[in-house]
Write a protein that binds this DNA or RNA. Structure first.
Lengths: 150, 150, 150, 150
DNA sequence: GTGGTCTAGACCACG
DNA sequence: GTGGTCTAGACCACG
């Protein structure tokens, strides 16, 4: 009944397992692969399929609850919340600038051109949002695109 | 003689101090504010001016050595390495895709449009690289630019 | 014949369904909307109208019996008990202090003034008890009142 | 160095241990007994003195971090945050009405008069805020007060 | 069967 | 020495 999530855990990545789980669930939700209100796999089910401890899944789910992405209902399961996101445009842009700056610095460090960076970001946006949001990408930017993504 | 670095530490940010130091040194190097071969301030000098433990600076420098950004010469000090970046284009793009994906997911979660995301990334690239690298930014994108940055 | 209770269940509130049912029945009883000795709707009737599992109603009723609010008569139904409340004044005050303390702490945390807290408590007492108990509210406090409530 | 907190755990209360810890720390913070920026006892120290598992303290502290009451610094300890409380007056009042309603219902159930309820709330406000905030309590309400509290 | 809490204990990251 | 993560496993609460 609940969608089967394809989550990959890399125990050697240095990123905490619960964070990897959060990131991938957020990806699925952001992409629309998991719809609002849909039920996630149960804690025990995920723990078994990912071969991690149930309390690790509990931690990931609890953090997602705090981020407003997931809702836990006693005895019922975990569900994707409607993503209202009451955040202000200023706060949002501040958060995005932080990540974008990190991207720019890493890119420069590794010798990537700004053009390549823009292509990669466009790639990821298209992969994530697919055809759903295509008209949101302005014409001028589409010239960089590689067509469409995963 | 070594450039005086203006590094800001926020002990409340939740980001490890040594990471904050690394990030800002990398930013200065990437921006060209610190040139290849230039000497960084000494460990005790930085520790004193930032009022952090010298071992924290040591950790930051060691990690930067590991990343190929800095070179330590016994008894001489720390120097910015030529950023040849022996990394392959594939590895580089893989690393950038990882950050770009995180940016896309957060943006979608917070309801930012793809256009806004592209603008923010262009902003940061321009802030970082300024006029130095202008020809690398294609004409079409320049319309988004804020002029120049730090 | 049994009064039709207007009970609202919010499955997203995080409060157990059986608790929500208990709280609202207690509110109706305390407000006098349901009189002593009155019959409550049957378990299956309530379960159907609230679209919850009958065992959830059973649990709510059992807890209310435990609290001395409701009496179950085999084959007859559930009835509102006379709220003699055999509790001692000491035990009662201890219980009320516990909730009042929680109220005070939350209020302070959120920056509400003591005056505002007193107003809010007076509001709720008046909403609950309405004109029925008016003489119990001293004159000086009536100035805060909203008139009457539900 | 960090204040010694006198926290009482009742394992039979039905209230989760981590919640009891949170509630009491919030009480100390709200009362001013622990000042902004002050260091809390370490996780291990609290775990030992309360004879609960360290992970239970971790849970309590993490929830307090999410509520903006506490700040955790890797390798440094746990600190009381400046309580900015960006909450709107509407949201705040809604939250307080919820608790006040519960208080009113329980009071009515147990046969307490509205006057007694107001006295108890005033008691707790005075106990919590002491002389610090006395002028905030308007004259009209002071007549109910028992003088002052702990 | 679902999530929620808690323990006992290991190992890592930060400073 | 501080907090952070994770395991293995028990027992409880909800429906």
């Amino acid at each position: 009944m609940a969608a089967t999530l394809h989550i990959q855990i890399d125990p050697h990545s240095g990123i905490p397992v619960y964070r990897q789980i959060m990131d991938q669930i957020k990806y699925y939700v952001a992409s629309g692969a998991i719809r609002e209100g849909a039920q996630l796999p149960s804690i025990r089910e995920l723990a078994q399929s990912l071969t991690v401890n149930p309390t690790t899944i509990v931690k990931a789910f609890n953090e997602l609850v705090h981020e407003g992405v997931v809702e836990l209902r006693q005895g019922k399961g975990a569900f994707v919340m409607a993503h209202a996101s009451g955040i202000s445009a200023e706060d949002r842009d501040r958060a995005l600038h932080r990540i974008a700056r990190q991207l720019a610095v890493e890119a420069a460090q590794m010798g990537a051109t700004p053009k390549r960076v823009m292509e990669i970001v466009d790639d990821e946006l298209t992969s994530l949002l697919g055809e759903r949001h295509e008209p949101m990408l302005p014409m001028k930017l589409r010239v960089f695109g590689k067509g469409n993504g995963a």
